[in-house]
Design a protein around this nucleic acid. Structure first.
Lengths: 208, 208
DNA sequence: CGGCATCCGTGACGATACTG
DNA sequence: CAGTATCGTCACGGATGCCG
């Protein structure tokens, strides 16, 4: 656990960096926007983080009120980590970083890891309205809770219930939509996104 | 200079953190939003940063296209560092961090350093319209270019020309306005802010 | 097997001193 | 003024081990 290395500046941005400026912290937050996750899941989706650093960050974040640790009910009792409301307020920070970093994303490098749900937040920016959206990529599936006010913003795997809309697309299209080079409606019109489902969101995308 | 330690993730937020996630980098960006600054000025307004780290970050940032180094014309020839357009696009990131960190700012701790222009960005969020605003705090003066599309967003010291509006207030009021606990218009109405000047911005604040 | 704790080599960081 | 040089310390990343 870090002995609280602070910038010691009376500045709100510096204070924020005192809490989330350490290496890996904001990426752990990004992972937890997918909902409660176990230690091992986090370690698997954050290639390169060492076990002790991950454990240390999770303790720091809990102490600082960003996350909470909860015991899952049996069977399979395990601890899961999840964002507190305060932690979820970091969404604009991650969104702003993602929007800025989009310009440097470019092609995937051979050394780059990929997880399907890393496209969730960029895609979320491109969606209006409200509802449960399931997204299918070759790399895997995830679901978005568009317009959700509380709880997880997105999740790994298929939607837990019948989705209001289902999108099928490839990573390239996903990146283009996320980067603002292609609007989702235009991607649908160009046949690069297949939309199914009966929710208002699905209908709005199809009829445009 | 860092040998480019990367998260190696095909994710726009992770890419952003590859570039600005190192310690001190975003705070250097915050300083440079005040306009071109010399090495010594940066070192003076970033208490705690060591000279070699500051030099290293400035090199990294120039290599990554965030800043540029320019020689000032004589008399007093010196190098200044300034943000590139790409660097200035980090404004939403710093704003989001500042907005989030405002909740943890609280009272000033004895160990906290303070600079007047650290209030500039929070205050900028509270201002609508367009114009040059001069702000006078006990801790010092700075000026804001509200609605500026290019160039520095704020600057240290009094405004370089006659300001469209001048605000005089104390740090406590400033923090309250920045934190959203108090709206600027209400602060003016409560007499906690003195507004002078003949610009539209000044008139709008006074007549409300 | 999931959830860490420990150990160790390397590199980043912070303070000070020094130089063009 | 604007850094570079040096050095001690600490944080990080990787591997391994322990314990429920």
């Amino acid at each position: 656990m870090s002995p609280r290395r602070s910038y010691d500046q009376y500045c709100s941005a510096a204070r924020a960096l005192d809490l989330v400026g350490d290496r890996w912290t904001l990426l752990i937050v990004r992972e937890l926007f997918a909902g409660p996750r176990r230690y091992t899941d986090l370690h698997a989706d954050l290639p390169g983080v060492s076990t002790d650093v991950l454990a240390s960050r999770l303790k720091d974040m809990e102490r600082d009120g960003l996350t909470s640790r909860r015991r899952l009910p049996p069977p399979g009792p395990a601890y899961v980590y999840e964002l507190t409301p305060r932690g979820r307020e970091l969404l604009p920070v991650i969104q702003a970083l993602g929007e800025w970093g989009q310009a440097d994303l470019g092609e995937r490098r051979p050394t780059d890891a990929v997880r399907a749900h890393w496209f969730a937040l960029p895609l979320l920016r491109a969606l209006e309205g409200e509802g449960l959206v399931e997204v299918r990529l070759e790399e895997g599936d995830f679901h978005l809770r568009v317009g959700a006010e509380e709880g997880p913003v997105y999740g790994d795997g298929p939607a837990p219930r019948e989705a209001d809309a289902r999108l099928q697309l490839d990573a390239e299209t996903c990146a283009a939509v996320a980067g603002g080079e292609l609007r989702l409606l235009e991607a649908v019109r160009a046949g690069r996104v297949t939309v199914t489902g009966e929710g208002t969101l699905a209908k709005a995308l199809r009829e445009a």
